[in-house]
Nucleic acid binder design. Sequence first.
DNA 1: ATGAAAGCGCTAACAT
DNA 2: ATGTTAGCGCTTTCAT
Lengths: 325, 325
Amino acid sequence: MPGIRDVAAYAGVGIGTVSRALNKTGYVSKETREKIEEAVRVLGYQPNELARNLYRNKSGMIGVVVPDLENPFFAKFLKCTEIELYKYGYKAVVCNTVEISDRVKELIGLMNQNVLDGLIVGVDPPDDVELNQIRKPVVSLDRNWGDGIPVVTSDNEKGGRLVAEQIVESGCKSVLMFEGRTYIRQPFDNRGREVRRILEENNISIIRAEIEWNLLSYEYYMETVEKYLSIFDKVDAVYAGDLIAAACLVVAERKKIKVPEELKIIGYDGLDIAKLTSPMLTTVRQDIQLMSRYCVETLMKLLDGNESIPSLQICDVMLWKGGTM
Amino acid sequence: MPGIRDVAAYAGVGIGTVSRALNKTGYVSKETREKIEEAVRVLGYQPNELARNLYRNKSGMIGVVVPDLENPFFAKFLKCTEIELYKYGYKAVVCNTVEISDRVKELIGLMNQNVLDGLIVGVDPPDDVELNQIRKPVVSLDRNWGDGIPVVTSDNEKGGRLVAEQIVESGCKSVLMFEGRTYIRQPFDNRGREVRRILEENNISIIRAEIEWNLLSYEYYMETVEKYLSIFDKVDAVYAGDLIAAACLVVAERKKIKVPEELKIIGYDGLDIAKLTSPMLTTVRQDIQLMSRYCVETLMKLLDGNESIPSLQICDVMLWKGGTM
DNA sequence: ATGAAAGCGCTAACAT
DNA sequence: ATGTTAGCGCTTTCAT
């Protein structure tokens, strides 16, 4: 691997000149520039980015932390985020927190070690995280990490309202709600709260089913759904995330329960999988691409030292009418 | 951010001693070690990994290149690969090639610039790739990249056989086969070849449908499936990747075609989505986790300069019986 | 316009 | 056992 010295020697100039020519910074005469370009071509020189990183004290890497890439929501989020980061010249370093605890703290450590220039987190903060340990930009998707950490989320209140309205309009009287366990207050809590508020207003009875949603496993979903649908066989509607909702559809089919005639199902997220069921899932679609764009844009502002950072950004959601409601 | 000098100064020792103490290399007396550890604690010192990287000439980053993370196959592959790399202390840098061309060449460049220590590729090599430009380890998933690039794949021949046997046994006479377009010979070509060979042997007629499988889009899938199923309405079986197969199921339902009575469907891949349809998809399951483990293990051997690298590793596949066949 | 020299923060070889 | 020194490959003053 040739270094900048080799290029300088070949071109018969100093290394400083080579550096300036390559970075287009400072003056270099046309002739020397050409000699240098020639040398670069002949030697096949490629600057060692590691050395640049050391000098600039940045790595060009952003950590993207998600619970589980097997969840299509996060897969899509990562995809969009990677493409978005690419536009700004950054690379995305993935991290699944599932199966391994404390990965988040490790990643915060990597920031302090300058391996990562910033973090986009789609997971809960660790219990004992010291926010003042965090010295580089962090943006959060859908989680409260505390002061100074901007949050990008979707309009959970509207989402909850859309769900509830569908249920009310359909004339259902007893709803099974699958909800993830949350340990601290999260932006998406509003969703369930809004659903419950409106349903209660309309005297619709609610059965809450708590699910370990971080545990993405088909078997677990099926089992849980089967259990609840057996115990509470008088519910006439189910509300759940798309994956669970799809599982409900399968269980209903198996139990010869007609959807939507005997049981209505409304999902949440608007994943593609909602379109691969039959009937297609009625669901509230989150704009994952927009959320990832906001995350990246916000992070870039933070990296630029920009002062005007919105602490909360909310993306619109929309009802997607399938045939299950 | 305190540096190693600060620690040395605080502890009243030289920086070399600090380095040795922290890296547990060379002799350091118990007392000085303790003084140093104290200093580290008090100052909150964290070594700058960028400087280490420069010295060691490695970044600890491995690029993982996939066509599209929205395809659950690749999402799962990346998930497993990330977790596997983690065990060896490496981080995974993602790259979706969809929507942006030439990303692969860019990533090869990043290897030469020492940003990446190696690459795991799940995509076709670019047309004009010069293998001798590649100076760091590359392992490929399911693609022929050329001499010296080990390939990890699954037992496509067996997979093809399993599919064909199912079709033969079920007594089908006319099969619609959805296959991805390939431009160069790929390991997974064997799958389709084997299917065709056995079907032909049994005088089963085949209709080939070419699909742009890199273009993962629900709408495109539905459209294509709908088109083929309308034109060729006399087929009694469909073979396709799980996603397309699931789309077939939806289209069949919509057209009031009974599955499996009037139309049998067999998928390929064994994604979780195959279990969220009803009836569940009969499919051939690839062991994605094992493939990712082989990829990482092979890459690690390459990085260690190990000589005994198998140029081809084949993972077993199995038939997963659902209700569509 | 260009070359020399001083770091970026660390590791390791070399003295002591 | 410990301090000093010379790099790792680059960027950027600072002279010239």
